[in-house]
Design a protein around this nucleic acid. Structure first.
Lengths: 210, 210
DNA sequence: TAATGTTCTAGAATATAATTCTAATTTGAG
DNA sequence: CTCAAATTAGAATTATATTCTAGAACATTA
């Protein structure tokens, strides 16, 4: 295998452990992302990935176990990338309203920065949720929304947020933005997500405001 | 093939042209829906569908052309079923606010009535949008939202709805509900969609209210 | 540094599933 | 009833995921 000729998106996975060999694993992930983005999950074959990554079937299966495993690994890498951007901004908020703005705006920003990862996450969600990694996914989502629920508690106590069924808050806050991003990523609408950051964060706030 | 022993969900596709032979086509769709719901799209094989439907490979390929074609046919049947419930209720509305309520409430109601179809639609969307039927899908979606945009125009003129980028309205109105239904259909939250109809229609209205 | 076990790479062989193809059967029009 | 078109059948083919075995690279320890 050659270490020259790395994919453009290779840098996305740098957070993983370092080392020459790990680099190859990351390279495969990166090439897989390109293939999935261009062809879709179904239409991308292991053989395609092997060829573009100048790797081998054996390597791919050694690292990921199966095509489904490769998809799951990429999904969690994407989730990490997203949370790495969002989490610090939410922690920097001073009031519930700012936390909501940070959540929405940073989410939109991430989608715009990483359209391939974002598109992949929306496409792969069901596969991962249905597969053997579903439990890991559930944990991750819980940790993802844990902090958000803290802010909501604070907001309710302060009389700024209305008391609603707790399982509805996540949808009320992110559903609109996610829906729009899905449309943008598939070309159905033209305006880039951050263009409408105001619109969406205002809508999210109104949805839960007292 | 036997015409006894029809699937429970067969009735869903009765709206298609009548006739003994068409019945078999509908029967295949119905069985396919059950398989997709139980196993997921990927894991369901044509052989499984053939067996449960007591049909043959030849018939399935004759009617649908490919697995992807079968998925697309089922998707459009599901879309029809959904619109058949939603459209009349929106037409019955007197004011923009009522139209929004009708849209949200009827959508939630449909999801609860047809969980298999709803789950399938959410899972299959990307496959259909990426496949050869993507154009048909785009047309359908346009007709789906056309009426909605009429109501919004009225609302803006009447000073009840604020003027926003037109491509954001659909997401602002249905994104939250869809996101919640997705979570409910995959078991991540417990409260049935209609339980929260008030919450979601209120949120949709607030999102666009002047 | 050499010995040795472990991880990784390779690609041929296998298994599984989608799709094609040809022939028989059923149906409906006239 | 006859014939053409539509439908049903399932065997053969093709495409793709996965397994398996062997060898190469690497790391650890004496």
């Amino acid at each position: 295998m050659s270490t020259e000729n790395l994919s453009e998106t290779q840098h996305l996975f740098e957070r993983a452990e370092p080392g020459v060999r790990k680099a190859h694993k990351r390279h495969i992930l990166s090439i897989a992302l390109d293939c999935f983005d261009e062809q879709g999950l179904e239409a991308t074959t292991i053989e395609m990935i092997r060829e573009r990554a100048a790797s081998s079937i054996g390597s791919i299966y050694h690292h990921f176990g199966s095509k489904e495993g490769l998809v799951a690994a990429l999904y969690f890498a994407a989730l990490d990338d997203q949370l790495a951007l969002i989490r610090p901004r939410m922690q920097g908020a001073a009031r519930p309203r700012q936390a909501v703005d940070a959540l929405v705006q940073t989410y939109l920003e991430w989608v715009e920065r990483q359209p391939k990862l974002a598109r992949f996450m929306l496409r792969a969600r069901h596969a991962v949720a249905g597969g053997p990694q579903s439990e890991t996914l559930a944990e991750r989502n819980k940790e993802r929304y844990g902090e958000l629920l803290q802010w909501i508690q604070d907001g309710i106590r302060a009389g700024e947020i209305r008391r609603l069924p707790s399982e509805t808050y996540a949808s009320l806050l992110i559903g609109q933005s996610e829906n729009y991003c899905r449309a943008w990523l598939s070309g159905r609408v033209k305006g880039s997500p951050t263009t409408y950051a105001e619109v969406f964060s205002e809508a999210s706030w109104r949805a839960i405001a007292a």
